[in-house]
């Protein structure tokens, strides 16, 4: 029986949450297609493969010293070896930093179409139809491949995490890992020694809508201080240098879960939401009633943050 293959992602010997979501995705999609779900684990040995087998009945393990650290060349060759030897119809990859780095290369290597950044999949007439975010999350689209095999990347949270069950089998797949043209030199922690906002009970974050560094300070920082909380930011604010990188909330920055998170002038890109959706109460202030931030907020005010924040301050 042909297979739907989830590619496990692991860092420092630990599986990512996204891997468990992909196991769930592989099981769901395989069941709708009448195919078999499986996972592939690439690493220097098969220790992680045994861990993944708790979540999916069949695991292919590719072990090679060249796979100790992630590289796009190493991963592409490893996945290709599994796809070609194990009757794989579809490859599922996390839309993570690593996933974005190699998924399209896998698609090229196995001559498959790729649909990336998906949040849903359904089966229609034997084909998998993927739903994905476009236009900054304002519009969604449906796409499918017209090739025999497919590759899809799924954004974080697209599926629930698969719970652990009875252990499946681990099968070794041999792969010759040839040329790897990028050399891993090390990891840098860019926020080391800086402020840690992740423990704050109240966070007020500003986004692109703050317009400039002075206004960010005048409105966002002032409100945060008045509420006895910390100030945070979405990516464009940090990119523009209006505040320090350690205050960035989102996929590439901090993950926070305060009691109160106020997002002002933040549209709500998925990368930002990934870092703050665990907040108990979310308040969104935005001029654009269509901004995706209103889809996850508890309370929303559609308005100009430069008028709304002073009005809030007047009530405190």
């Amino acid at each position: 029986m042909a297979r739907i293959l989830a590619i496990a992602e692991h860092k420092n010997g630990k599986l990512t949450d996204g891997t468990l979501e992909l196991c769930k995705a592989a099981k769901t999609i395989a069941s709708e297609l009448g195919l078999e779900p499986a996972a592939a684990v690439l690493g220097k040995d098969d220790s992680i493969a045994k861990e993944v087998a708790k979540y999916i009945p069949l695991v292919f393990s590719v072990s090679d010293a060249a796979l100790e650290n992630y590289t796009s060349d190493g991963y592409t060759q490893g996945v290709k070896a599994v796809v070609e030897s194990q009757d794989v119809k579809g490859v599922l990859v996390a839309h993570s930093y690593d996933g974005v780095d190699y998924a399209a290369k896998v698609a090229m290597a196995i001559n498959a179409g790729i649909v990336s950044n998906c949040n849903k999949a359904r089966v229609d007439g034997g084909a998998v139809v993927f739903t994905r975010n476009t236009y900054n999350g304002k519009i969604q689209e449906e796409k499918k491949v017209n090739t025999d095999k497919f590759v899809a990347t799924f954004e974080k949270g697209a599926y629930d995490m698969e719970p652990a069950g009875s252990p499946g089998t681990v099968t070794a797949v041999s792969a010759k890992i040839g040329a790897v043209r990028t050399t891993f030199k090390g990891l840098i922690e860019t926020m080391a020694g800086a402020v840690d906002i992740s423990q704050a009970k109240i966070i007020v974050s500003g986004g692109r809508g703050c317009k400039d560094a002075d206004k960010y300070k005048e409105f966002i920082v002032t409100l945060a201080k008045k509420l006895g909380g910390e100030f945070g930011a979405s990516r464009p604010v940090v990119d523009s240098g209006w505040t320090e990188p350690a205050r960035q909330v989102g996929q590439s920055g901090k993950t926070v879960s305060p009691d109160l998170y106020i997002a002002a002038g933040i549209s709500g890109a998925i990368q930002h939401i990934a870092g703050m959706k665990g907040a108990k109460c979310i308040v969104a202030i935005n001029k654009d009633p269509e901004a995706p931030i209103f889809n996850i907020a508890t309370y929303g005010i559609v308005g100009d943050l430069f008028e709304v924040i002073p009005a809030i301050l007047a009530n405190l």
Partner: peptide, 18 residues
């Protein structure tokens, strides 16, 4: 290698209390 099917505005399951 891929076919576009359609586009639409997302329907949120949880809209903020405006």
């Amino acid at each position: 290698k891929t076919d576009f099917i359609k586009m639409f505005f997302p329907v949120s399951e949880h809209k903020a209390e405006i």
